[in-house]
Each structure stands twice: as structure tokens, then as C-alpha cells.
Nucleic acid binder design. Structure first.
Lengths: 336, 336
DNA sequence: CTGAAAGCGCTAACAA
DNA sequence: TTGTTAGCGCTTTCAG
């Protein structure tokens, strides 16, 4: 059913119908008539047709690398919470870590004339940058700095530094780290940098022998821990780039009879649920993912409204959550 | 820029442009011209306008209760994988467990003229059902049976029964369960039913004293376990409706000095990552969430194509994953 | 407050 | 193969 048919059915003009669903400059009487007709027919105006008339879509494109990652899901939740309130819808693209799909997605968004884009960033190639620069609509980047764009970032470096510092203070002598690919700026470079800076601050020399690299899952953390411990003389404190990795490392330690925290202290980053369930529970840094998503949405909305709106970068800080893996006591109380 | 302007720029007719972006009944020469013009201008046709012309949107609505739940995220990943291949996009609504938002979402989808809807179900009220019945487009339900609709379900009853049976076989004498709200058919009713059936099969009487109820998170599991153990004489095997709950129960046991599996065996359901990280690692049933999502997408696509397509229900089976919490050995190998 | 009419950007049937 | 033309379903002036 289209607006004309419906208008006839309701016994009003098509403009009346349009007004009913929009601003509503309408007599009470017609309003009633239309309401009744809607009830009977289930008519609803086509958003697409409205889009072409109105020349806005109230649609926001969201690109993320992996939906089943806890952090991504939380960011998206934050985004969706804000956007929903304002009547914006989300066009979601899960790139499944295939970064070529990211440019495809940007393409898709251009076709769909979305009003803005939020990009959960991992790795940026030059292609990305050039495609991004061609976008003529607001783009907000979450999780990474990219010059020329508004960004929401986490203080990854600070979190890693604070965690490492914590272990050092507690008597760590031979610090080690399981990092992730340095292509990933925040989880990779920043966290490794934090680790290094903490060593510096404590007057320790950084030795790359004490750094292993893992993927983002627990299994990979398990294997990296194995390599690390077999290669080096017993590290006594270990920073892991993510909580998943830390959980994997704990698995290895248990298997190898290495006691936590007596023989080795362990930290993760991100405050994932897994860190609370793992045993010993994992000391970590909370990174406010959901807030990041919400702030990104807010920023985007403001950029959409005042098209002049200037770039801004918001860095969200971290909170240290100390648990058993560094000798903290296991909270009976839960955080969130 | 619109198609007419672009056509003029490229020196061709607007139909040529349309054909270039669609079927492409076009001479090589014009194709080249258009390609070059696209390169220069970044022109992309408006999907909305196409939608109104074509009377299809290539859009699928997805409603889910909680994006940050691991199972939901996995289902959505499965959906997105299939849909992407076919050029369908996802309009995502996260209801945040507020079921009134579900009907709103259905409304939204009607407006957007999505080609179909996938609903990750939890609780169904009568309002849901009536709204659902008014939909004139294909709807696929994941995670629950609803008569009149095509569904993908998991064998929750079987999984719960098998897990309980396993513990009973291993010598469990006083079985207990931490269930979730019976409003949730699959995680609630079905899993509780499976527990009961296993008791029956073993010639044991079901005693509701040995059932506690929790929410879906670890904290809630912790508290339910506390209530359970304080109220009853030591259950020696415990089925939890989800892995998160089981992880919470383990937390309580550790705190209370109850040994796992010596004093009590514990099982979860779902094969979440948390069960592998928890200590002792949690015996569980794998429920193939991602596959469920993929199958739902496939089903929807087929329903969209052959509008006559009949209802079908696909039940996905489970696999038992035995781990330390029931005395299984801890696999060094990882499952997925 | 209302209805007619002129678009919005695109597709597809048609005749050439 | 091509261009012309008549819509698709809706919004929004504009004159009443």
C-alpha cells in the first residue's frame, strides 16, 4: 500500500497523511481518521521514499573488525544506546578482520548515503586513509588516533604502564610481556610502549627477549606463554596485551606448575569478563568501551548537526582493577 | 550529485549510468567513460532512490536482546557472514533486554521495508506474537519455537539432559541446578526440563529445593550458588543453565572451600570462552550459535526468493565438551 | 489548516 | 545497444 491508496482509504488527502507522520500540522479530526486507518491497514510510510524526498537518511554506518570480540560488542552497545534515542539507525558491517572489507563498507555507506560513519579501528593502511579522506560525511574513529578525524581513544599506553609499574612495585624483577601485532596501534604499539616506559621509569633495561607476540585469543596466549617461558629464565611478572591472552597464559602456567602470583604475577588489559572468571582472577585495566561508543555517537551526532563542527579527540582514561594474579585479594563484590 | 548531473559530466545518458551500476547492457566505450567519471567525481547512486524504484531494499532486520552476550554476538556473526555474500545489509536493533523495544523494532522494519527479519528470541509476550503475525514479510526466529514461523533452535533439553546424565553416571547422588527464568523458553524451560528428564531416567526424584534461579551473568551465578549451598545439604553435582553462571558458581565454591570436582561436579551450557578459562575448566555443551545464525540467514534468503516457501524448523544438536569440572582432563588442545 | 503540484534520484519498459 | 519516458512513494512549497 502506498500513501495515495492509504489516503483514499482514510478519506483524506495525501498531504494530510504525510503531515500525520511528520510535523503534523493537522486538525484533530483528520488525525483521528488517519489513526484509525493505520490501525486497520497497518500502513507505514516507506523510509526509502522519505529519504529521497528529504535528502537525509538518519542512518549511521558502523564498521567493526569482529563482532564477537567483547570490546567491540561493548562499544557497539554504547553507540546504539545513543543513536536509538535520536532516531538514528545503524547500518552494521562486520569486517571479520578482513581489512579490505573495510573499504568496501565505506563504499556501501556512500551508496546508502548514511549521515555519518563510526569506525572501530584496528589497522590503518594507506588505502584506508585515502578512502577515508574522500568521505564527505562526518567520520568518527574509535580506538585510534588518525589525523584529520575526530577520535575517541583509550589511554592504552597509560594503562599498560600503570599495570607494569604495579608489578614492579610489588617486587617484580624480570618483567616480560606478551604483546600483539604492532600494526594494531592501540592494543599493539601503545601497550608495548607503556610496558617499556614503565621499565624505564624503574631504571630497568628493556630486553626484547622478554617479549613474545600473540593473536587476540586465549589459545594464542597459551602458546605465546609457552614460548616465553621456555625461552627465558623465569620471568616473574608478565603483562599481557589483553585479558584473553592473560587467561591463556594462566592456563599454561597451571600446566607447567608455575604458581601465580608467587612465581609470576600476571596482568591483562581491558577488564573482560574472562579475567574475573579465570583463576587466579586477573589484574587488569578497565577501558570504558561502552562509554567510548556512546561518546563516539554523541560526537557524530553533533558533527552531523553543525556541519562546520571542528575535529576533537577524546581520550578516555583507565581504572586499575587489582585481583589475585598480582596478589590482590579476590573481591567478592563484582565490578559491573 | 545526482544521476542526471553525473550522466552529463560523463557525456552519456542517464540510462547508461543506471545500466552501468546494474545489469550493464552497455558498450565497452561508455563503460570506460563512466568508469573514468566515477573515479573523478566519486559518484555513487543513492540506494534509497533505487529502493523506491525497484521496490526491494536488500535489507534484513535483526533484533537481538543483548549484543554483548557471547551467544548473540556469535549468532549475529553467522547471519552477517551469509547475508554479506548475497549483498544484503543488516539493520540492527539491540533491545537491551527491553522487550517493548522489540515491537518498536518490528515497526521500524516495517517502515524501512526490510525484505525480512531475523529475531533472536528470548521471551515472547502476546503483544510480540500479535505484532509478529501482522508482519507481511518473512520472519525467522532463532532460539525458540513459535508456531506459524520458521525457526532455528538448539537442542537445549537434550544438552541439559546429557550433561546431567554424565554427572549422574560419574556417581552424582544429590543433583542440583541453577536455572534461569522460565519465561525464557530455551535457556529457562528447556534446560530445566532436560535436568528433570535426566533425573527421571536415573530413577531419581526431582526436588525443587535443589533448584535455584539466577540471571545470566557470573555475579548472579555466584549468588545463586551461595543460596543453593547454604540451603541444602551439599549437592554433589550441579547443572548451571549457562557457562557464565557456572563460572560464578565456581567462584563461590572456591571461596567456600568446596572442591571441584571432588565435592561437587559442575556443568554449564553453551561452550562460552569463559568455561575454558575458569578453573577448574567447565564441562559444557557446545550449541553451534554461529551456525544457527548462518542457517537462519539462509532460510530467510530462501523465503525472500520463493515467497511461497513453507515453514520449517531446524534443530541444531549439541556436542558435549568434557573438562575438569566433572573430572575430565583439561585439554591442552583448544576447541575453536 | 489544507490540497494541488512540482519535485527527490533512480529504474525499467519501450521503441528505436 | 541506446535514449526517452513514465513511474516508484514520499515531502514540501505555494496559494488558498
Amino acid at each position: 500500500m502506498n500513501i495515495m491508496e492509504f489516503a483514499r482509504f482514510a478519506g483524506v488527502s495525501r498531504s494530510a497523511v504525510s503531515r500525520y507522520f511528520n510535523n503534523g500540522y493537522l486538525s484533530e479530526e483528520k488525525r483521528k481518521q488517519i489513526e484509525a486507518a493505520v490501525e486497520k491497514t497497518g500502513y507505514a510510510p516507506s523510509v526509502s521514499a522519505g529519504n529521497v524526498s528529504r535528502r537525509v537518511t538518519k542512518l549511521v554506518g558502523v564498521i567493526l573488525p569482529k563482532l564477537s570480540s567483547e570490546s567491540c560488542a561493548r562499544v557497539t552497545e554504547g553507540i546504539s544506546e545513543i543513536l536509538d534515542k535520536e532516531g538514528y539507525k545503524i547500518l552494521l558491517v562486520n569486517t571479520a578482520n578482513d581489512s579490505s572489507r573495510e573499504t568496501e563498507a565505506l563504499e556501501l555507506f556512500r551508496n546508502n548515503r548514511v549521515d555519518g560513519v563510526i569506525l572501530l579501528a584496528t589497522v590503518f593502511s594507506d588505502i584506508h586513509k585515502s578512502v577515508l579522506n574522500k568521505m564527505r560525511i562526518p567520520v568518527i574513529i574509535v580506538g585510534q588516533h588518525l589525523k584529520g578525524f575526530s577520535c575517541i581513544t583509550h589511554n592504552d599506553e597509560g594503562a599498560a604502564r600503570a599495570l607494569t609499574g604495579l608489578m614492579l612495585e610489588k617486587g617484580g624483577e624480570r618483567p616480560a610481556m606478551i604483546a600483539v601485532t604492532q600494526d594494531d596501534v592501540s592494543a599493539g604499539m601503545e601497550r608495548l610502549a607503556g610496558f617499556k616506559h614503565a621499565l624505564e621509569a624503574a631504571g630497568k633495561k628493556f630486553d626484547s627477549k622478554y617479549v613474545e607476540y600473540a593473536g587476540f585469543d586465549m589459545e594464542s596466549g597459551y602458546r605465546a606463554a609457552k614460548r616465553l617461558f621456555l625461552k627465558n629464565e623465569s620471568p616473574d611478572c608478565l603483562l599481557c596485551a589483553t585479558d584473553n591472552i592473560a587467561a591463556g597464559a594462566e592456563l599454561y602456567c597451571r600446566e607447567a606448575g608455575i604458581r601465580i602470583p608467587e612465581d609470576v604475577m600476571i596482568c591483562g588489559v581491558g577488564n573482560s569478563k574472562i579475567g574475573r572468571a579465570a583463576y587466579p582472577s586477573i589484574t587488569t585495566a578497565r577501558l570504558h568501551y561502552k562509554t567510548a561508543g556512546a561518546e563516539a555517537a554523541l560526537m557524530l551526532l553533533s558533527a552531523v548537526k553543525h556541519r562546520d563542527s571542528i575535529q576533537r579527540t577524546l581520550e578516555l582514561d583507565y581504572d586499575i582493577v587489582e585481583r589475585e594474579s598480582t596478589g590482590g585479594k579476590c573481591e567478592t563484590e563484582f565490578i559491573d
